[in-house]
Design a protein around this nucleic acid. Structure first.
Lengths: 155, 155
DNA sequence: TTAATATCTATTAAATCTATAGATATTAGA
DNA sequence: TCTAATATCTATAGATTTAATAGATATTAA
């Protein structure tokens, strides 16, 4: 379960979109600047998020991006799946569109496939426990905590 | 959470070592043949498993490998970690040996790091629920089910 | 009409994973 | 003691995936 750069950028971008400090519509360029993400790469990330319905875009001058749904309704799993595709441990272990492995004789009786299907389900479930709302809360907190001084002892 | 070939081979090899059809000591060559794994690659896998203490080896002629501990005491997580290293979503999210990311300013206040540390913990926990004993049981079952005829309806 | 924007496809660059190669060390048995 | 079969180790080639960049087109407010 390595987090790809793409997913990491997606998380940062969405956290930014969900921040109270962000205008209702923000351009790729500005988003890239704020989150320190390569602009052209962020482009692709937002494209994927848009296709998955997690954000909405306005084209043309003064265009930009905004969240599409409520942060509480978007899970960490949704985000990762949107940019990296289904997070199945093996191609054959995707419950929706299983792809037979080269060396496996039968999908049917492969214990590794069955095991990994369960593992994949567990991972998906784990990632779906956290919502974008949670993520935004954390981001705000750490933003705040970075501004305060080191704690001092009161007498 | 993609399963590397290395991990997949490790699982197959260990399942084979835990099978009643396997002699108490089996050579790499024979193991590679039985599980259809490139021999030189399997070599590296077994080396890692040995270093992690999951198997034991005898060198010299008539040497080979065997399980070191009881299958019920070895988890799926142990196996994957043994061959692929700690399965942390980000280098900085490894609770034991956190490695600062290039673009992250501080380990301390990075919400992504904290979030991913929790995700990593969840994934580890999930993988540690399944033991090699479970895996061996599944492997035996699927071995058996492959030998029986298609089910027929009894009257 | 222009300038700023999103969209799309392709390509290059870098990193990682998979596999192979070739050497050395060890040991049972002839 | 020698030989053959084995594990161990390090290096490297080959393949695949990921990350980043490039350059075009489409859209829209002003």
């Amino acid at each position: 379960m390595k987090l790809s750069k793409k997913s990491a950028y997606a998380l940062k971008a969405l956290a930014c979109l969900g921040s109270p400090d962000t205008p209702p519509l923000i351009s790729i360029q500005e988003l890239a600047r704020r989150e320190n993400i390569p602009k052209k790469f962020l482009e692709q990330v937002l494209l994927a998020l848009n296709k998955a319905g997690l954000v909405q875009s306005n084209r043309g001058k003064a265009g930009g991006y905004a969240l599409r749904g409520a942060p509480a309704g978007i899970t960490l799993g949704d985000i990762v799946r949107a940019v990296d595709g289904p997070l199945s441990p093996l191609p054959c272990a995707n419950p929706l569109a299983p792809v037979k492995c080269a060396d496996c004789a039968s999908l049917e009786h492969c214990w590794l496939r069955i095991l990994m299907t369960e593992v994949g389900a567990a991972v998906n479930t784990a990632l779906d426990q956290t919502t974008l709302a949670d993520i935004c809360r954390r981001a705000e907190q750490s933003k705040r905590s970075r501004h305060v001084r080191a704690p001092m002892y009161e007498i």
